[in-house]
Design a protein around this nucleic acid. Structure first.
Lengths: 239, 239
DNA sequence: GCCATTAACATTGGATCCAATGAGAGGGGA
DNA sequence: TCCCCTCTCATTGGATCCAATGTTAATGGC
């Protein structure tokens, strides 16, 4: 199975489009945990998986390295970065400020329909995480959560802001955050209500409140994630 | 001169280090205006200039493309991006928020020595821009200005924050901003006093004031830059 | 039996190759 | 004279090549 010419159907793109596509797909596999933290990424293997040569794969890996998701050691190959707790806290502090700005800017621009969309996304997220099957629940939760946050960012009307936020997000595997919320009912409820409070502020047209609630929410999420990595590093290499 | 094997002495680096080095040098040439906005970047030419093959050059170009400094058209080559005024405004709004956060965070951490360093940098910047020779003045001004801003960012103690700020800055050629301040005495004085106000707030230990002054300063700089590009695009292709 | 040295192997990374695409010049027809 | 077609040339971009480096396992000495 592994030596099939093309495991994944890559539409015949070329140049930047191909490289971006490869980077995206590799990123996804890391984000969802299909490729776990600390795992090695061999160029030849990825190349044959995607049915291309090593050249575009290398360029894709460089891109992921620049974003910080993987580390490339000279002549040794690439591994998925193991996030340091302090780095997670720093990154989430930046993200918190950016998303707070996005929320504040979204207030005068948001429509009733969009508020409804956000409400639906939040409810779906809650339902998914209260569901039974852990793995698809994680997946769906992550998707709903992404919709909630990226929608607010896009409503802000500042494309640079959206990009800056996603640049930071793309730095850490996300399945972990979802896992936390799905598995822990207290986290689940807190998360739901934090989103509700943000939504309320948006509906009320209170920019200051929206920004503050968003900032607090993101900082909290970052703290949870950092704690998880702390725990992980103390229980080293235990299944 | 152009066909010399290696115009620039590239220390024999390899892998990511080499690619980053190339990206850095190409970026610098664009930033300083040595390679002007809209100019074509031919891989073969760059490769022979740096004494390497096209392979690492292509990876470097991809990196610059990801950051938005250049645009790569399929099978057509790379050109230095021509910033759109609205994009400049958006980017500087994000940068303003990030630098405001940095200034606020720097307040409880800054030392007397560092305040003195900032004062010196600001004074040097003013002296340089009040000097005679426009081109070196631009260069020196840019350097002093960079020191002022990056020092505050680094004092914030958040490496991610510093990176996020420089990521945005690396998106636009900077010689333009320097040119504006150097050539226009009103801009020059305003710029100097804005820096002074930020410094005062830092010295006073007033985080809120530091953040507000920094935000305002950056927004203003962005507005000036955006205006310049607006003017430029209306007087198309005129020497 | 344990450690060091070395030799084979796996993998990376720059250089080169060639097909594909696009731009521009030159020629032919209206 | 102007337009369009085609041929050629320049340039990009994926594939392949080979040298360099790191890793691992086996062998030999102690």
């Amino acid at each position: 199975m592994t030596s099939e010419p093309a495991e994944t159907a890559v539409t015949r793109k070329t140049g930047a489009a191909l490289v971006d596509d490869l980077a995206e797909q590799i990123r996804d596999r890391i984000m969802t945990g299909a490729i776990p933290i600390g795992a090695q990424l061999r160029q030849a293997e990825l190349a044959s998986n995607f049915g291309v040569s090593r050249t575009p794969v290398r360029e894709a890996l460089r891109q992921l390295q620049t974003s910080g998701l993987i580390e490339v050691l000279p002549n040794k190959g690439a591994v998925v970065s193991v996030p340091a707790p302090w780095d997670v806290r720093e990154a989430y502090e930046v993200r918190a400020e950016l998303e707070a700005l996005a929320a504040a800017r979204a207030v005068p621009r948001i429509t009733r329909d969009q508020i409804e969309q956000l409400r639906v996304a939040n409810q779906e997220m809650y339902d998914h995480s209260a569901g039974r099957h852990p793995v698809p629940a994680q997946h769906d939760h992550r998707r709903s959560n992404d919709i909630f946050h990226t929608l607010i960012a896009s409503i802000s009307g500042n494309a640079r802001l959206s990009k800056a936020i996603s640049d930071i997000n793309e730095t850490f595997p996300r399945n972990v955050s979802a896992q936390l919320v799905v598995n822990d009912s207290r986290h689940r409820d807190e998360n739901f209500h934090e989103h509700e409070r943000i939504l309320q502020a948006l509906a009320d047209g209170d920019a200051q409140q929206a920004a503050d609630q968003m900032r607090e929410h993101v900082i909290k999420a970052g703290e949870q994630l950092a704690r998880w990595y702390e725990l992980r590093s103390s229980t080293v290499f235990r299944g």
